[in-house]
Design a protein around this nucleic acid. Structure first.
Lengths: 152, 152
DNA sequence: GAAAACATGTTGTATATACAACATACGGGT
DNA sequence: ACCCGTATGTTGTATATACAACATGTTTTC
């Protein structure tokens, strides 16, 4: 008998599609990679109610104590509007304050923000260790090479 | 004179934060990597008004002609609700149709969808070539290793 | 066969992200 | 002093994504 799971009759054949391997795609490989790694980090960070994007902001501003907003976008390679809105949430929660220098915003970490990130760091390290364990030594070196080649 | 760009007086020091290197983070490395690669793909795909996520759906369903919705999520490692909504857009645009087999949705590519993806493939290949050129042969192998380790 | 467990799909909500359009400010050149 | 180009920030809009809660249907257990 015919299953309901039969191909709808397409009007013609699509040879280019059929001869193309979607998995050679660099973007797809990275997308799959980051989904698995993100899941690891989310699991470890869940109790802190923080995301990796937010933690990146906390760490990068925290390490410098303050940073011009424009620098944050450059260091994390984020679009300007993304930075505006990601910071907005963190400012509302009291982790950062925004001051102005010659009409340009400068982002300062607060004591609340610094304490918060310090409370998160141990679990972030655990997540990093779990991810590294999955990668192995060679996988970690490989990731470093990929990042270097792409951002060089 | 003192610049306006001076650190706000934090009430205490944050040694753990200061001694921590944010850039050892596996998730951050992958996030930076995918941002650079995504930009390459967006540039090449811009004229087709398609995103990499959409193109992945088109290719994976197109290669199989039809796929149970649950399989799509497994292959792309996407959450169920994400699949529901990503597909919804593509169905509305007429690239897929949704039929039901024992009350479970099965996604079929349409002629419109198959023609569309074939029209995109050349530019997608060009994007892939540009990304591979940036990676180099060693970087490409490194990326394959990273993906393999993470998804094995 | 009924109840419990499991798998799958959808909707509500929050976050992250980019691009376009616009606003604003700064710096140079005249 | 003024204009112009560049850099930067914000808002509008669209997409992508995950989790929680719920609904539904299937499978397993007894």
């Amino acid at each position: 008998m015919f299953s309901y799971l039969c191909a709808m009759a397409l009007k013609k054949s699509y040879d280019l599609l059929e001869s193309t391997d979607p998995w050679i795609c660099v973007a797809s490989k990275l997308a799959l990679s980051i989904r698995t790694v993100s899941a690891i980090y989310r699991k470890h960070l869940k109790a802190h109610n923080v995301t990796m994007s937010q933690l990146s902001l906390l760490m990068i501003v925290g390490k410098h104590k303050f940073l011009p907003q424009s620098e944050i976008g450059k260091k994390l390679m984020l679009e300007r509007s993304t930075v505006t809105r990601d910071l907005k949430r963190m400012i509302e929660r009291g982790y950062f304050v925004k001051k102005y220098d010659k009409s340009r915003p400068v982002i300062y970490i607060t004591d609340k923000g610094a304490s918060y990130v310090e409370s998160i760091i141990p679990d972030w390290k655990a997540a990093t260790e779990e991810a590294k364990a999955k990668l192995g030594e060679d996988g970690e070196q490989a990731l470093n090479l990929v990042l270097h080649k792409l951002t060089k």
